[in-house]
Amino acid sequence: MRAARFDRYGPAEVIRIEERAVPEVGDSDVLVRVDASAVGVTDAVSRSGTPWFARLFFGLRRPKYPLLGTEFAGTVERVGPGVTRFAPGDRVFGAAEVGAGATAEYVVVGEHAAVAHAPDGLDAAHAVATVDGFLTALPFLRDAGEVRPRQSVLVNGASGTVGSAAVQLAKHLGASVTAVTSGPNAELVRSLGADRVIDYTRQDFTTERDAYDVIFDAVGKRSFGACRRALTAHGIYLTTVPTGAIMLQTPWTRLFRGGRRAAIAFTGLRDSRTKGVELEQLAALVESGAFVPVVDRILPLDELVAAHRRVEGGHKVGSVVIAITDAAGPADASAADAATADDSREANGAPA
């Protein structure tokens, strides 16, 4: 089978596509023929080895996990003799463990790992585009932020993979949502459910005062210090980027201050069984029209280097998807796909 690999840290050009043996299937394993994978920030970080603290997990001097890709969507090819949840021919989507190598023609995952039956009505490319953003945004908003109905939530970086998922989830949780993005993406985030849109090229949301119960910086561009006064008296600031400052501010503001506080969630370290349950919830949300995928573009496996460059460029809208097979979905799809989000939501009775 063809699989993506890198043997040293560096730019996107260190990636190569090589031939490997199809993985063996254990008693409780599922072998998935991958139709589509996704390239996320974690893939780019693991390949580049930057920022420096990422190497504490990915390997200090050389990559500990040389096979690329975690998110996948495809069809079950074989199952181990102890598997009861899945059968050959089932359409599935999920997130493999780091190093399993989901950007490949086949990947093995545990039956009770982060894998679930794919949502009806989505091709593989659009199914895989929902995974990373949802599995990241959900624990941030639901667990760390404790978002509740009638709260005010601001999402910075609202058109990215995590941000677009956060807008939809915050709305689903009953919050009033303010989305921060650039002007060209304003209609996209409105279609995802944002009640208000701020164009960051024209307005700085941090100049507001006592405005938001939760500020979720999905791109790690604004600090707790910059956002603090925009929070309500007991508001919480969340960020996806584990800087030294946030690592100190999280325990300090929780233990020694009774007002505004900061928090980070290490979503990649959560139990894979929990993620599997959440993927089942995601499938139900997609099928009800309450959650829609946002696809930046779909590229073939041979253009994986270009996909990594796109992710590192910081201007993608939604997920960059890699088509492993023709069954992934139409090529050259873009974020314009999400322009139909309003129609999908209205047709299913969901709020636009």
Results as ranks from 00 to 15, higher is better:
residue 62 R to C: 10
residue 90 D to V: 11
residue 87 A to P: 00
residue 84 T to L: 11
residue 10 G to E: 08
residue 80 G to P: 09
residue 68 L to K: 03
residue 90 D to K: 11
residue 18 E to I: 12
residue 11 P to W: 03
residue 82 G to D: 11
residue 27 D to V: 15
residue 76 V to L: 09
residue 11 P to K: 07
residue 85 R to K: 15
residue 59 G to K: 04
residue 5 R to I: 13
residue 44 A to W: 01
residue 76 V to S: 08
residue 15 I to Y: 06
residue 36 A to Y: 00
residue 64 K to R: 14
residue 78 R to M: 11
residue 17 I to M: 05
residue 76 V to D: 05
residue 88 P to T: 06
residue 69 G to T: 00
residue 84 T to K: 13
residue 83 V to H: 08
residue 70 T to Y: 02
residue 3 A to M: 08
residue 9 Y to E: 08
residue 91 R to N: 06
residue 10 G to Q: 11
residue 12 A to T: 11
residue 66 P to R: 08
residue 29 D to S: 14
residue 13 E to S: 15
residue 3 A to Q: 06
residue 87 A to K: 13
residue 90 D to E: 11
residue 79 V to M: 07
residue 12 A to C: 09
residue 22 V to Y: 09
residue 48 S to R: 06
residue 45 V to A: 08
residue 20 R to K: 13
residue 72 F to E: 00
residue 38 A to H: 01
residue 3 A to E: 07
residue 32 V to M: 10
residue 12 A to F: 08
residue 74 G to I: 04
residue 17 I to C: 05
residue 70 T to Q: 02
residue 21 A to H: 09
residue 46 S to V: 10
residue 29 D to C: 14
residue 60 L to N: 05
residue 51 P to W: 07
residue 23 P to Y: 08
residue 63 P to L: 07
residue 39 V to T: 02
residue 9 Y to N: 11
residue 52 W to H: 13
residue 3 A to S: 08
residue 56 L to R: 11
residue 72 F to I: 01
residue 79 V to A: 06
residue 48 S to F: 03
residue 52 W to F: 15
residue 23 P to R: 07
residue 16 R to D: 13
residue 68 L to E: 06
residue 11 P to M: 06
residue 69 G to S: 02
residue 33 R to D: 09
residue 36 A to D: 01
residue 32 V to I: 15
residue 21 A to S: 15
residue 37 S to Y: 01
residue 57 F to N: 04
residue 72 F to H: 01
residue 55 R to K: 15
residue 55 R to F: 09
residue 13 E to Y: 10
residue 6 F to W: 08
residue 83 V to P: 10
residue 75 T to F: 10
residue 53 F to L: 13
residue 82 G to K: 12
residue 39 V to L: 02
residue 83 V to L: 10
residue 3 A to T: 12
residue 58 F to A: 07
residue 41 V to Y: 01
residue 86 F to M: 12
residue 84 T to C: 09
residue 16 R to H: 13
residue 87 A to I: 10
residue 27 D to Q: 15
residue 62 R to M: 09
residue 57 F to P: 03
residue 22 V to F: 06
residue 28 S to L: 14
residue 67 L to E: 05
residue 40 G to W: 00
residue 2 R to E: 04
residue 31 L to I: 14
residue 61 R to V: 14
